[in-house]
Amino acid sequence: MSNFTQHIVNLLSKNGLVAAFLFSGIVTAAAAFISDKITKKRIHSSAIAIFLGLFAAYIGGIISGGEKGLADVAAFSGLAILGGSTLRNFTIIASSYGAKMSEIKKAGVAGFISLFAGIISSYVMGAIIAFAFGYRDSVSIATIAAGAVTFVVGPVTGQSLGAESTVIALSVAAGLIKTVFIMIFTPFVAKHVGITNPRMAMIFGGLVGSTSGVSTGLAAYDPELVPYGAMVATFYSGFGCLLCPSLLYGLTKLIFH
């Protein structure tokens, strides 16, 4: 019997991408069912699918002890391909098919300004929290603050400033929390904070930043808004990597030495 299970696992891991398609389809169907029958369509099925995905990632993390969620479990290893950065980027770009150039021109400047406002405000919030928890050296504060920008910017900043590895790990965790919170809360607060048009979606993408968070959160609220938010958000980590270890660290050092 265990031999049979082994065969199934081998089959799934050898054809990983195909298994991942099946997984995604089943989760989508389950989410649609829960949305229709249990919540009476009050909660969008994509939002439920995201919850199920995150829950599966948690279970996967417990089983494997790894860092890639369910993708660390052999039978589901294909999820790392389907949900990896290449296909994610590919489909995000495809999502912009049908977006209007006029909308982007109209809100481009606002989106760009919100990008910098978002990086700086996230950094400041991260720095305040780091200070509140007793960190007093500028390198640690800057690294944790950069983690609050995104989980890419945190380690990039930490490594270039020579921060301790525990602090770098903390910054990655802060960025991770940010991404998952954006995924979970965006569909519920979007309407209340006015993310109902391409312009506000672009500003939202610039303010919160994380591409995976923004694109997932918007997908669960209104897929039509995904390209506008995601486009601005894709510039966030890059500009964060530019600003955090240089200008923002410099300012932090002036305050904390």
Partner: peptide, 22 residues
């Protein structure tokens, strides 16, 4: 590929380090 976007997002959420986060 535009319509494959949400399935990809679901796969992506399943690859997040949620255990590490919690």
């Amino acid at each position: 590929w535009k319509s494959m976007y949400i399935p990809v997002v679901i796969a992506m959420t399943a690859c997040q380090n949620v255990r590490g986060m919690l």
